[in-house]
């Protein structure tokens, strides 16, 4: 009886949270999906036109390019940030002098917004202002680095700028993990004569799995919502070559006055995230129950 009362109080205390979840999250998602099936333009309308906006979406070159770009960006950004972040963490873990100084320097980019990162790299990489021009001024006339002005290469530079910013965060997370590894493990490995790189590869990395997962989730959310970096660095250009889905949604929502198409695009993004997330959640749920059972 007592327990039940406590349950009730707990449920009651959770009511505001439930209200927020139902109305602010689930409600708005349902509303967006509903709008995407209508013929809304600047204002929401109540009619029903089926999947018309979705047909248009997938026959729009810019959307296809956006999806390809977010895939390219995502793979390079996540792998790049994890690898570089890990290497930085390992280096700092060697008990070097001035560690805190380096830690601050490496983490510093993360304290900046993507807009600042984007603008700074845009200036550095602009062929007529930045690096290339500097090399020309120094006398190296044949030096060319014009990727930012090339539609087929610019997205890699965007990913590079993203890595530059996010590696420090990955480093901080993994460094904390490395510090948590038992010293005895290292001693044992040394006695057994295992080379250091193998210890990292086969013992340390598996031990850091949780830390890697945390970093991965943070990086993955950054990939899905990448918008400001692109706006500041390339504006989606040259042409539409560095467009991303989030920018597509914003442009059609506010600028191009087609909220049906914008919500259709955001619904597709939502489904894509669900598709990735569901097996993960399911996996965790199963494991959690098994552990609870054991």
């Amino acid at each position: 009886m007592k327990l039940r009362l406590r349950d009730l109080t707990a449920q009651f205390a959770l009511l505001p949270t439930w209200a927020i979840v139902v109305f602010a999250y689930i409600g708005t998602i349902a509303w967006s999906i509903r709008i995407s099936l209508s013929s809304s333009r600047i204002l929401p309308s109540d009619d029903f036109v089926g999947l018309k906006s979705y047909y248009r979406l997938f026959s729009t070159d810019r959307w296809i390019i956006s999806v390809q770009n977010v895939a390219i960006f995502g793979v390079i950004f996540i792998i790049g940030a994890l690898v570089i972040g890990f290497l930085l963490a390992v280096m700092l873990d060697q008990r070097i002098k001035g560690e805190s100084l380096f830690r601050t320097i490496f983490l510093y980019p993360y304290a900046m917004s993507f807009v600042v990162t984007g603008l700074a790299w845009q200036w550095i990489l602009n062929p007529s202002l930045g690096l290339q021009q500097m090399m020309h001024n120094l006398g190296w006339e044949s030096f060319t680095f014009d990727w930012l002005a090339r539609g087929d290469r610019a997205i890699y530079l965007v990913a590079f700028a993203g890595i530059w910013q996010a590696s420090g965060l990955v480093m901080a997370i993994l460094l904390a993990g490395l510090r948590g590894i038992d010293e005895d493990l290292w001693k044992a490995a040394r006695i057994d004569g295992i080379p250091t790189w193998r210890v990292y590869l086969h013992i340390v990395i598996p031990l850091l799995a949780g830390m890697f997962a945390t970093a991965l989730v943070l990086l993955a959310t950054a990939v899905v919502k990448v918008y400001d970096l692109v706006v500041a660095m390339t504006g989606g250009g040259p042409g539409v070559s560095t467009e991303v889905p989030a920018k597509f949604v914003i442009d059609y929502l506010f600028n191009r006055q087609n909220i049906a198409l914008a919500t259709a695009a955001s619904t597709v993004m939502f489904i894509a995230v669900l598709v990735v997330l569901t097996p993960l959640l399911y996996h965790q749920y199963i494991i959690g129950r098994r552990r609870a059972a054991a």
Binding site: R41, T60, D61, R62, A149, G151, G237, P238, G239, V240, S241, D251, Y252, N255, R256, Q257, N258, L261
Partner: peptide, 19 residues
Amino acid sequence: IAPDTDGSIHDLIGTFFTD
């Protein structure tokens, strides 16, 4: 033309200019 169509023209011309 509606802003929507205007946007499609933007994308087309922008791509043409740079590619």
